[in-house]
Design a protein around this nucleic acid. Sequence first.
DNA 1: CGAGTTTGACCGGCGC
DNA 2: GCGCCGGTCAAACTCG
Length: 337
Amino acid sequence: MEKKPDHSKSNSDNSNIMTSTTFSDQIPAVYSGVGGGFFDMPQGCLDMLNYQDDGGSSLFDLFQQPDLVPEQKRHLLPPVSTVPETAEMVNTPTQNSSSISWSSNDAANIVDQENKSRSVQEEDDLHDGDDDQEKSTTNKHLKPKKKNPKRQREPRFAFMTKTNIDHLDDGYRWRKYGQKAVKNSPFPRSYHRCTSVACGVKKRVERSSDDPSIVITTYEGTHTHPYPMTPRGNIEILSETTNHGGGVSSFRFTQPHYQHRQPQPQLLPYFQNQTIQSSSLGFNTTNASAHPSSYSHPLHERRFCPSSSSTLLRDHGLLEDVIQFQFQNDKPKEEQN
DNA sequence: CGAGTTTGACCGGCGC
DNA sequence: GCGCCGGTCAAACTCG
């Protein structure tokens, strides 16, 4: 599908991708100072990451945990801007000797590339909207099909998932609207939009060129509808108790029609500890229909993953190994200079 | 027939 | 200014 000239070019162009750029999408402040990291999460976690309501929060609040010493945070989220060209953040899976590498050639670079193309633009968006409007009006002269010329970038979350399934079912319904060959990667990148009306959440899915078993999923924006808008996979939200302190809200994921069962999740040791040790890192699903606008919240009683801790160890289907790898605020822009 | 996918073309940003 | 590349559009197509 991708244009052949582009594809061949992509494969032949081995120029390095610079890594020392910033992730300047409108990442909430909670991510400031941390870059990316590895997570292995059971199926369902990604949904909760993607869905954040006013009372809840995201996985990334993990990194605000006061009991996380800086070393730990760094271990989880190595700042991309400081990851050396040769640096690898390696977590050794518990089940085999293979390691998932954080190299400058895959996940980090994906975001880096975006950063490069957006860091300046987004600052303009924030501080210089008039200029953009001028640009957009000129664009319309060229191509009327552009409907939303002044596009505002949404927060982005990127995850690496170790799976052989290309499209991870995260509970939401997605419509694919494009696919492109990616430079330096034999695997195409697919573009998806949430099918919910007026929900502008986008998702990009691609495979790591370094490790084809890793799927990199990048979410952009936040869903403006309850989770899940259209049940896909009998996902239920069990809002048992409102809890900013002791109650437990939990998701229950049942997986009715996955034909390809995945191997057991490879919980990376550190994250596994984090997950198990603290149900406080879970998600608050209270007020599940609220607008998921907030990324940074004080610590709530939250549940990362499906309520039963045993689910951590069972077959979690498609999202057995989710590795969050990239969150970066504008801050590192200074660092790289 | 509607929803979703494929795919070629187009656009804009960025580096050289 | 030009070419590369990521992102998006939209018509054609497929599928249930």
